Simulated scan of single mutants.
Amino acid sequence: MTQHGYPGYPGHKKLHDEFVKQVNDLQKDFDEGKTLPVKTSQFLRDWLTNHILKVDQQYSAFLNANGVR
């Protein structure tokens, strides 16, 4: 993204940083013996449907429009 000048990179990076924090928080809860199957599955479902299928398409379209395949 940075190599090709994607203007949305800072915001996109922030979303990924937040994702990592949430995963780490879930791991911490799990390590403490908390079972979170519903919370974890909802989190992953939301990431897949909202981020990968929507947000990632924005940079994909930008890169394709700028000759990156």
Rank of each mutant, 00 (worst) to 15 (best):
M1S: 15
M1I: 05
T2V: 14
T2A: 14
T2Y: 04
Q3I: 11
H4I: 06
G5P: 01
G5K: 03
Y6T: 02
Y6Q: 02
P7I: 03
Y9F: 13
Y9T: 09
P10F: 03
P10W: 05
P10Y: 01
G11H: 07
H12F: 07
H12C: 02
K13E: 15
K14R: 15
K14A: 12
L15P: 00
H16L: 14
H16T: 09
H16A: 06
H16Q: 11
H16S: 03
D17R: 02
D17T: 04
D17I: 01
F19K: 07
V20H: 08
K21E: 09
K21R: 08
K21T: 02
K21G: 03
Q22R: 13
Q22C: 01
V23E: 00
V23Q: 00
N24G: 00
N24M: 04
N24S: 04
N24P: 00
D25E: 13
D25A: 11
L26S: 01
Q27L: 14
Q27V: 10
K28S: 08
D29F: 07
D29N: 11
D29V: 01
F30D: 05
F30M: 06
D31K: 10
D31W: 04
D31Q: 12
D31L: 10
E32K: 12
E32T: 06
G33A: 07
G33N: 09
G33Y: 06
K34D: 06
K34R: 14
K34A: 11
T35G: 08
T35N: 15
L36V: 10
L36F: 05
P37Y: 03
V38I: 15
V38G: 08
K39N: 11
K39C: 02
K39A: 15
T40L: 14
T40R: 09
Q42M: 15
L44R: 06
L44Q: 10
L44C: 11
R45E: 12
R45V: 06
R45A: 11
D46W: 07
D46P: 00
D46L: 10
W47N: 00
W47V: 05
L48Y: 12
L48P: 00
T49N: 13
T49F: 12
T49M: 14
T49E: 15
T49W: 07
T49Y: 11
N50F: 06
N50L: 14
H51S: 04
I52E: 05
I52R: 03
I52T: 05
L53T: 10
K54P: 00
K54Q: 14
K54A: 08
V55K: 13
V55E: 15
V55H: 06
D56N: 04
Q57F: 05
Q57S: 07
Q58G: 05
Y59W: 10
Y59S: 03
Y59R: 06
Y59F: 13
S60H: 09
S60C: 04
S60N: 12
A61L: 12
A61S: 12
A61F: 08
F62E: 01
L63A: 05
N64L: 14
N64T: 13
N64R: 15
N64C: 05
N64I: 13
A65W: 03
N66L: 04
N66R: 10
G67Y: 03
V68E: 04
V68M: 00
V68C: 01
R69N: 12
R69F: 03
R69W: 03
